[in-house]
Structures are given as C-alpha cells and as structure tokens.
C-alpha cells in the first residue's frame, strides 16, 4: 500500500484513492496519420519496464481527479517525487545514497 503525495492536494494520501495510468511523458504524435505502422505501434504498445527509476502517471481518482506524475523506484517501491502534469521530473537518476 503506497502513500502518495498528490501535488494538487498537497498531501500524502492512501493508495486506495489513486489509479495508476502507466508510463509518463509519452505524448500523442501531433500527426498520427503521418506515423508509420511501426511508429504508431511504438507509441501505442511499447513501454519501458525498468528495474529502478520509472516515471509514471497516476490519477487522484477518489480525490481531486487530477492526473500527475510520479518517479518511483520499481525495486524498492519508493516514490522519490511526484510532480504536476507538464512539469519535468527532478529525479532522473539515482544518487549514490538512493541506489538500492
């Protein structure tokens, strides 16, 4: 059971209030019709599955209904930051102390 800081509510909330929505920072191609099948397939189906840092989207479904991003260590399940939609992550690699 995660304890997730909603950057809009400004509080930690229980995981039950949230839905995970997959990998973050994917954006819909501006002209889908110009994409090859392969490019579209990449956008549609292919996702990272890292052991370590992962930027992912969550929605505060039973809360403020806002989508936001989280940087999570998929090994320790530690959430290193959450940030609003449109913001860039601050944590993009492990510091030595975080490395698990």
């Amino acid at each position: 059971m995660f304890y997730i800081y909603c950057p809009y509510c400004g509080e930690h909330r229980e995981e039950e209030e949230f839905h995970p929505k997959g990998q973050a920072h994917l954006s819909r191609p501006t002209d889908p019709d110009a994409c090859s099948d392969e490019e579209w397939g990449d956008y549609l189906y292919f996702r990272d599955n890292p052991r370590g840092l992962h930027h992912e989207i969550w929605v505060h479904a039973i809360g403020c209904r806002k989508f936001f991003n989280a940087t999570r260590d998929t090994q320790s399940y530690e959430i290193l930051e959450t940030y609003r939609m449109g913001d860039a992550p601050r944590v993009t690699h492990f510091t030595d102390t975080q490395k698990s």
Binding site: R13, E14, E16, E17, I62, G63, C64
Partner: peptide
Amino acid sequence: VNTVLGKSQ
C-alpha cells in the same frame, strides 16, 4: 477532504 469511505467514497 474527498476520500474513500467503506468501498465507496
């Protein structure tokens, strides 16, 4: 606060 109540909200 909007939150979970039982299995509803």
